[in-house]
Design a protein around this nucleic acid. Structure first.
Length: 606
RNA sequence: GGCUCCAUAGCUCAACAGGAUAGAGCAACGGUUUUCUAAACCGUAGGUUCCAGGUUCGAACCCUGGUGGAGUCACCA
């Protein structure tokens, strides 16, 4: 299909050469779509080239305009406003665009050189159910995967499950001590929530124990000896909690012993660990299913946490890393503007970074990933900078293809989500709420189909989250997220449903739109459809599904307006009717395709 | 404290590479339905783009300095 922006650039370069005998590369021309309030479809901005040509912008614009109108059949008119050359395109051009789109169902897909792309997202801990923060993560990861796929890449969706460590041991211990063999089935609780409750139980018991200890003379002695100046007793004990856990706490000791047993592969401990993690996985599976996402491969931290040591050895041998006297291994990243980073503890055990190095290598070996995208919240920006810098130092072939899709945390209107204050929004509860809200709204409209209601509710939730630029921190207002009107998922669904409704009534149609003069709205809509591939292309390059969300909304908005402007089935002429049926079919398709890229499903009626 | 990111209408968000008069939605107010489904459309009102300088034909965007907020700076993950 013709890339009209490119065509205009070429024509302008040609004009400049013919008129001013000057060579200006096509890339130096700035072509944008014309602002709505002005006449025209595309605009050439001439300020930037004015210096090179030593002519005032309006004169250049006029000269180029005259030239391209004379030499290009697809130009129907031009208009100069200051340094802006507004170009109107001919009916023949628009007809050609329509024919091209009709003949090629993939016209909206950008073409990028095929790559093997790995996208890591979700990556939960196994001691708690998924929450609102995970939802943003998952929607971003899922959507990026779909976008890469649409760009022609080979995509592998993976998550790394943090299934080991002290956290799950806390849940295990609490269940062991107080659970009396109860199971999720017996308790009638979704299994991942069940495990989460034992984690909470542990924290509760531990806090009680800590509180008691604070009353002892031993504790008071610590406070008076180690408090910093002006630190209140309360602040001191808050800050001291971890130290207490690791040195004095009985529960802490038991939990650490459990972790140790796990590391020594103690039979009973492993069995318990498997049982509780199994519960969690079953619960996660449900949540993923509700969200409509899936993974190609799961990595478990219990299987990867020892990886990476050989890379460290190799790096040491090659002098990329260095060893301190105590035996710990470090890397100097000051030349990358970072710090010195620990890679192996003095006792030879690995840290998070070691594991990540090893996992990346493993993925490269297994999948040949040329690009690896990590969807991880922005609190880990520094970690990924360091990780990538180390990869580059090691000269890993995949180092240039590493990318951290860093997204901002999700806040509530009242502020940060805090597990301690119980303000964390649970993923399952949230989905149930939005679907329930959709059900209530559907009642007035005499609509009861549960699948349609589910799609509407989920669209509201997903769109509310994915429309925001990933890099920015966002505020999640539960009330606003269930809105079904305005800038929402259901608004876009409604536009699609309106298209389907007309198409259903129209039935099988044949005819011709030969000679039909399309109006300004139709040109705008057609042009917007043509933009889709650029939007998808940008979304992939900028790692931002939000671009597609905003595009889909704008398209839906234009369509809703158009819907009120013109009649399709009772159009003035047969040509008009035929043309419009084709146009709205394409609009419906693109709305559905772009929403699909966001992981949002369309209902056929609503 | 060092480094990084953010600040746009009352609220939630846009603004393509530095381009024309900074746009949507929500909330408020007023209108549109014998209709291809009103989860829609049209209109009114709402702005010192945090502040002060600078760069240029042109700045929400780039530079400098400030203010406010967030994150991070572990032999945690």
């Amino acid at each position: 299909m013709k890339d009209i922006t490119k065509e205009i650039e070429i024509a302008a370069a040609e004009a400049v050469k013919a008129i001013y005998q000057a060579d200006i590369p096509t890339g130096d021309f700035l072509v944008t779509s014309t602002k709505k309030e002005h006449k025209g479809d595309y605009t050439l901005v001439t300020f930037a080239i004015s210096k090179a040509l030593r002519q005032p912008p309006p004169q250049i614009a006029a000269a180029i305009g005259e030239y391209i109108q004379r030499t290009r059949s697809w130009v129907s008119g031009t208009e100069v406003l200051q340094g802006f050359l507004n170009i109107s395109l001919s009916t023949a051009y628009w007809n050609e665009v329509l024919v091209d789109m009709q003949g090629n169902p993939d016209f909206w897909k950008p073409s990028q050189p095929r790559e093997k792309v790995l996208v890591e997202f979700s990556s939960p801990n196994t001691n708690k159910p998924l929450h609102l923060g995970h939802i943003r993560n998952i929607l971003l990861g899922w959507s990026m995967s779909k976008i890469f796929l649409a760009c022609g890449h080979e995509v592998n969706k993976v998550q790394i499950v943090n299934d080991r460590g002290i956290a799950i041991c806390k849940s295990m211990l609490a269940w062991q001590k107080f659970g009396e063999g109860i199971t999720p089935e017996k308790a009638g609780i979704k299994s991942d929530h069940f495990v989460g409750e034992w984690y909470v139980r542990f924290e509760k018991e531990f806090s009680a124990e800590y509180k008691l200890w604070q009353e002892t003379d031993d504790a008071k002695a610590h406070y008076s000896k180690r408090k910093e100046t002006e630190q209140s007793e309360q602040d001191f004990f808050k800050a001291y909690k971890n130290v207490y856990f690791n040195t004095y706490s009985d529960l802490g000791k038991e939990a650490r012993e459990l972790l140790l047993k796990w590391e020594y592969h103690d039979h009973d401990t492993i069995a318990l660990w498997k049982k509780m993690n199994g519960w969690v996985y079953a619960g996660f599976e449900d949540t993923y299913k509700s969200l409509g996402v899936s993974f190609d491969k799961l990595y478990y931290e219990s299987e990867t946490y020892l990886l990476g040591k050989d890379l460290i050895e190799d790096g040491l041998k090659r002098g990329v890393f260095y060893k301190k006297d105590d035996g710990s291994v470090w890397v100097d990243l000051t030349d990358a503007g970072l710090d010195h980073k620990l890679l192996l503890r003095s006792d030879g055990t690995s840290v998070y970074m070691t594991q990540d190095l090893g996992t990346a290598q493993k993925r490269y070996d297994e999948f040949g990933a040329e690009r690896m995208v990590y969807v991880v919240a922005d609190e880990q920006n520094y970690h990924f900078q360091a990780l990538f810098a180390i990869m580059a130092k090691l000269g890993a072939p995949y180092a240039p293809g590493l990318h951290h899709l860093s997204y901002g945390m999700v806040d509530l209107p009242e502020g940060k989500m805090k597990s301690r204050e119980g303000t964390v929004v649970d993923a399952d509860d949230l989905m149930a709420d939005v679907v329930e809200e959709a059900r209530v709204a559907a009642k007035d409209r005499e609509m009861t189909d549960p699948e349609i209601i589910r799609r509407i509710g989920m669209a509201a939730l997903k769109f509310f989250i994915i429309k925001v630029d990933p890099r920015k921190r966002m505020t999640f207002d539960p009330k606003a997220s269930v809105d079904l009107q305005g800038q929402t998922g259901p608004y876009i669904q409604n536009a699609y449903v309106r298209v389907q409704s007309i198409l259903r009534r129209a039935g099988e149609v044949s005819g011709s739109y030969e000679g039909y003069e399309l109006n300004e709205d139709e040109k705008l809509l057609l042009n917007m459809l043509g933009q889709c591939r650029h939007i998808v292309d940008s979304a992939a390059r900028e790692y931002s599904p939000a671009l597609i969300a905003n595009y889909a909304f704008t398209l839906a908005k234009e369509y809703h307006r158009y819907y009120h402007e013109v009649k399709v089935l009772q159009a003035e002429t047969e040509q008009a009717k035929f043309f419009r049926l084709i146009l709205i079919k394409l609009i419906g398709d693109i709305l559905a395709q772009s929403m699909d890229l966001l992981g949002i499903e369309m209902p056929e009626r609503m």
